[in-house]
């Protein structure tokens, strides 16, 4: 069998490009029908008042204008979303980097821990959020039981936080759940980034007399910066789209403490029949995420270090 002849016979020819598109067609149709069209459609909806039951009425930019001028809770909901972004992204980044550094060491049992840390990622968020409701139960929850137990052991008036009646703690409950749920994913990406750093750089650093901290600061971090950049984009988008974590665990409460923009979109459109408002909110969220991502692309030149640049 002449393999070489076969390969040349099936070689890609420039006049055969349409065949490629034929193979892509099923995916393209799917993308068009199930993603692009609904996205464009939602832009159209955002310019209408539509309750699903009666015909849509064109209102121009009214839905957008109302959000910024007379909406009773949009500013609070937007502020919450920004809070979650600011709280979750750096914490998750730091936590995952620490985990990744620990797990890439050749310690006994490391593969087991890798699996354990990744497990929450494949857990359904609804199930996880319900479990965490119990974990945070002030009187009988897992976390609280530890605090009560320590308190009675020390004979001290130690009491766990009232997670779900106090806005401050409810927010942190959502942050903790999100970190628990998503850190496994971030850790795996960091581990891949760490393993891609050539050994020789560390050896060179050691020869130059660099200690542990110095080689981390001057070798690991710069070499990881593309990974950090990638994760920053992914995590910020994820934080802006936070929904299941808070919706299931706290329902957005107490007060408005944990209500996010996505929950507001969902409720406006599907609970209160304001499809136009829901669509307008979605587009505001999209523009915010898009602008932030764009800004990050611009800023990356200042701090992201690609090996080929050296």
């Amino acid at each position: 069998m002449n393999n070489h002849a076969r390969f040349t016979a099936f070689r890609w020819r420039s006049d055969q490009q349409w065949e490629g598109y034929v193979f892509l067609l099923p995916s393209l149709i799917g993308l068009f029908v199930f993603s692009l069209l609904p996205v464009l459609f939602s832009l159209g909806i955002s310019l209408h008042e539509w309750d699903l039951l009666t015909p849509p009425v064109f209102v121009g930019l009214k839905n957008f204008r109302n959000l910024f001028t007379q909406d009773l809770i949009f500013s609070e909901v937007a502020a919450n979303t920004v809070f979650f972004c600011v709280a979750i992204v750096p914490l998750q980044m730091a936590l995952s980097l620490l985990l990744a550094l620990a797990l890439t060491r050749r310690l006994p049992g490391a593969p087991l821990f890798r699996a354990i840390y990744y497990m929450p990622v494949v857990t359904t968020i609804v199930a996880a959020a319900m479990i965490f409701q119990w974990v945070f139960d002030r009187n009988y929850g897992l976390f609280s039981s530890v605090v009560w137990g320590v308190g009675s052991w020390l004979n001290a008036p130690l009491a766990p936080p009232d997670w779900f009646n106090n806005g401050f703690w409810a927010r942190w409950a959502v942050v903790i759940l999100t970190l628990w749920k998503n850190s496994g994913f971030t850790t795996v990406i960091f581990m891949a980034g760490l393993q891609a750093i050539p050994r020789v750089l560390y050896e060179a650093a050691a020869i130059d007399g660099a200690g542990r901290w110095q080689s981390f600061r001057h070798v690991t971090l710069p070499m990881l910066s593309p990974t950090i950049f990638f994760l920053a984009i992914i995590l910020i988008i994820g934080a802006f789209q936070l929904f299941g974590e808070s919706y299931v665990m706290t329902g957005g409460g107490p007060g408005y403490a944990t209500m996010t923009v996505v929950q507001y979109i969902y409720q406006s459109a599907f609970s209160y029949f304001r499809m136009g408002k829901g669509a307008a909110l979605s587009w505001v969220l999209f523009v915010a995420i898009f602008a932030l991502t764009l800004a990050q692309w611009q800023l990356q030149r200042k701090w992201v270090h690609y090996e080929s640049n050296t």
């Binding site: 009646n165 806005g167 409460g253 409720q267 609970s271």
Partner: peptide
């Protein structure tokens, strides 16, 4: 429902929570 979920209920929750 919209009025209740978005205005009344969340603010009452803050009373119940002692906030």
């Amino acid at each position: 429902d919209e009025m209740n979920d978005l205005i009344i209920e969340p603010n009452l929750q803050r009373i119940w929570g002692g906030e």
